[in-house]
Design a protein around this nucleic acid. Structure first.
Length: 420
RNA sequence: GGAGGAGUGGCAGAGCGGUCGAAUGCGCUCGCUUGGAAAGCGGGUAUACCGUAAGGUAUCGCAGGUUCGAAUCCUGUCUCCUCCGCCA
């Protein structure tokens, strides 16, 4: 959510931002609703003032005066009810429009409609050259008994999977290594709920749009698609001491995505599943653009470093306007090389929001001047599993069907160098 | 799942239809006092919005309702506590 004051004062900027994001938003409708809202509120406040003052005089009034005042107030009340009903209607529209206003993308965000127009800004590592016919992660992992997709489907349904033996062990190894890696960068580890209430999803910007991509319980709660939701909700409705900023969390959680509308995409293997695990980086910092930018670069760099330490080739793209979420100001995706697909696949997404999320979540801090401000929020994938396994086993496969374990992970795999 | 009880300012805690943004205490803060400190005394001490200002409006978990008027009454809802049941 943006500040209505900001929207009023920067109408053109907000409108062009929406356009850049390829979001159809009618800012004039919002400003019109806001004018109505302000006018009605002014009227109603005046009436309430009259009511309040009558309420004070009535106490010491004689019976006769009292009757007079009551008569007036009854009439006033009738008028007021009319205005209030109208305001209610206006507020409903106003709020709904306010939730739809997209945050303004940064000037450095490239133009474009979808992920095809994302711009590569970095390339790292050498693509593997195989002297043999390389196999897909499905084939490799199935042969090594690391994954069972058939039984996964039997038990869990479409996109279901079991990780077993070294598939399971490798996952634990990655989590444990990642935990140590990121804790070294000052993050506070958390295990956060996936089952969350509507407010947390509204606050993070996943609702009201995007409901069809979430699993919902019969109690009206949701399964979050990322640990970001619960982590951001953690400080909802709180005022944080300024000294506590920046706050950095590394959150672990199962993630659930219905992948509605993706039925034909990536139907095989571990690229796109309904249920996965993710370590997520979340940062809350003071309300300064430069701080947000600094931490955004830092978040993204953290994940790059992590991938580099595993030795998997990747590239980083800056997402174009059309590929940004409603609240995102700027986003980087890190994509790992997937040999059998002959392309890079996304495993990480780092974005910053300014106060878009915290305004909805009501997370603030007190500045030196005693003023309360909304904190800035940022988040980035640290590491998702099992998607990471796809690139890992395909890039490090060997002719005999075995898989080389990256050196960094070996200590977490009992010192083994190879999965076979 | 059943039966009760509770949610008030930074904290504790009064108020239970009108003069209540809310007693009192603690905390914090400023001043006096002091060589300095403690104690004592006096003042200040929520937030948001509208307004150049004076001032106005809203907020006593949240949402509705009753009333000329609600922290106070009614309904719903959320959270917490106690007891019973169920389960691990």
């Amino acid at each position: 959510m943006l500040d209505i004051k900001f929207i009023r004062e920067n109408k053109d900027l907000v409108a062009s931002g929406a356009k850049k994001k390829n979001v159809d938003f009618n800012i004039d409708a919002l400003l019109e609703a806001d004018d109505k809202r302000r006018a009605l509120m002014g009227k109603i406040e005046e009436m309430r003032a009259a009511q309040n003052s009558a309420s004070q005089t009535i106490v010491n009034a004689t019976a006769l005066e009292k009757e007079e005042i009551l008569k007036k107030m009854t009439a006033l009340k009738a008028d007021m009810e009319k205005e209030e009903a109208e305001l209610k209607e206006v507020m409903r529209e106003w709020q709904s429009l306010m939730l739809q206003v997209p945050n303004v993308p940064d000037i450095s965000v490239p133009e474009g409609e979808g992920d095809v127009q994302n711009k590569e800004i970095k390339k790292w590592g050498e693509l593997p050259k195989f002297s043999f016919q390389p196999k897909s992660h499905i084939e490799i992992m199935t042969k090594l008994n690391m994954v069972d997709l058939e039984r996964g489907t039997k038990v869990s349904g479409f996109r279901g999977y079991f990780l077993k033996n070294d598939g399971a062990l490798l996952s634990y190894a990655i989590w444990q290594y990642a935990l140590n890696f990121f804790l070294g960068k000052g993050f506070t580890p958390m295990i956060v709920p996936s089952l969350v209430r509507r407010e947390a999803l509204l606050g993070t910007g996943f609702l009201p749009q995007g409901e069809e991509d979430l699993y919902k319980t019969q109690d009206g709660d949701f399964l979050a698609g990322t640990g970001e939701v619960a982590t951001m909700g953690y400080y909802m409705d709180e005022i944080l001491p300024k000294e506590s900023l920046p706050t950095k969390f590394l959150s672990f959680s199962p993630c659930f995505r219905r992948e509605a509308g993706s039925h034909a995409k990536d139907v095989k293997g571990l690229i796109r599943v309904h249920e996965f695990y993710k370590l997520e980086q979340v940062i809350l910092c003071v309300a300064e653009h430069d701080e947000s930018v600094k931490f955004h670069e830092e978040l993204n760099r953290n994940t790059e470093e992590f991938i580099e330490s595993l030795g998997i080739p990747y590239h980083t793209v800056v997402n174009c306007g059309g590929d940004l979420g409603l609240g995102q100001v700027k986003k980087y995706d890190i994509e790992l090389w997937v040999p059998l697909e002959n392309k890079y696949r996304e495993i990480s997404s780092a974005s910053y929001f300014h106060d878009f999320q915290t305004r909805r979540l009501n997370i603030r801090y007190k500045d030196e001047d005693g003023k309360t401000r909304y904190v800035h929020s940022l988040n980035s994938t640290a590491i998702p599993t099992p998607r990471l396994l796809v690139s890992l086993v395909e890039n490090f496969q060997q002719e005999d069907g075995s898989v080389r374990i990256p050196e960094a992970l070996q200590p977490y795999m009992g010192g083994r160098k190879v999965i076979k």
